[in-house]
Design a binder for these strands. Structure first.
Lengths: 156, 156
DNA sequence: TCAGAATAGTTGACGCGTAAAGTTTCTTCG
DNA sequence: CGAAGAAACTTTACGCGTCAACTATTCTGA
């Protein structure tokens, strides 16, 4: 459905740029709702899952700020996020011996099990959400979004 | 830049569907950061601006739940959002006389002034973010995103 | 060597999204 | 007419993103 209808917008968009951006924001929001629901049924939030996924991908404990830099999470927010993951038994904190400022975060067996259990439902959700687009469409979409982020990657 | 690099992902994506979805989420997040900054310099958050924009578009006071239905904001969240807008002097609450359950929200002069002041910087930001895509590219992007939301509009 | 800068992380405050439960005000129907 | 249900919010509780300020540890250079 066209975005203008979805949000009951009266007037047309001011510019194609605005319309494209609002479409990106809207689509992202709706997808996030779905992922949030799935993760919640496994006792995780979307942010928490992201942290666990990064740790599994790396295969070894990571400094807490390194985790923050790979997520959208801003530095101060990562502390509480890791605290809640630790309380829930998904990660362990360990002080680094060489540099005692550093805190490394490692996965527990419980976390690995939960991640493994999520792999298939997650893949199914991906396909349910966007599986009706062809390979070529997906490729085009990916390329356009990468191009859309272009000015931002350089700026930082 | 390709997403895999941006987030220092070690392994390639599990599926093109996953890659496309992560690109959508990532792009949306980065854009939101920019809008948030702009709005903040005018004393508004992104959510607050959205409420004001809807009210201006409608041209008359709207029931509070009608506003919620046009934003991503879930019902309970709208109350606090409007409270803060009211405290900041951007909107007025008025009890409807015919149906006293209904609370209508109207813009103040201050809000209209702030919205007008934001129009140009906002348009510039849109163009700065995505102005380097051609008309044809924007059109394709919009179409693909609308198609991507297809299953979701029906589901609701 | 040792004072100041840099780095790693935490704390506190605030706004927002989400869910569950409660309140007030219609509406409906027996 | 009066009780049950629906509608329109509000309240409370929790997790998270963001900013500013703070602590602890390490590095650097005069």
């Amino acid at each position: 459905m066209a975005l203008q209808r979805e949000i009951k917008k009266r007037r047309p968009f001011d510019s194609p740029q605005q319309e494209a951006i609002l479409n990106i924001l809207r689509t992202s929001d709706q997808y996030q709702v779905r992922f949030t629901r799935l993760f919640r049924s496994y006792g995780l939030t979307l942010s928490q899952y992201n942290v666990l996924r990064i740790l599994r991908g790396e295969g070894r404990p990571l400094p807490i700020l390194e985790i923050a830099s790979r997520t959208i999470t801003v530095v101060p927010g990562i502390t509480g996020l890791v605290n809640r993951l630790e309380e829930a038994g998904f990660v362990r904190r360990e002080r680094c011996q060489e540099d005692r400022r550093v805190v490394r975060i490692g996965l527990t067996a419980k976390a690995r099990k939960t991640l493994a259990a999520l792999d298939e439902p997650l893949d199914e959700l991906h396909k349910a959400l966007i599986g009706h687009l062809s390979r070529a469409e997906l490729k085009t979409l990916i390329q356009l979004l990468e191009k859309a982020r272009g000015p931002l990657s350089e700026a930082e």
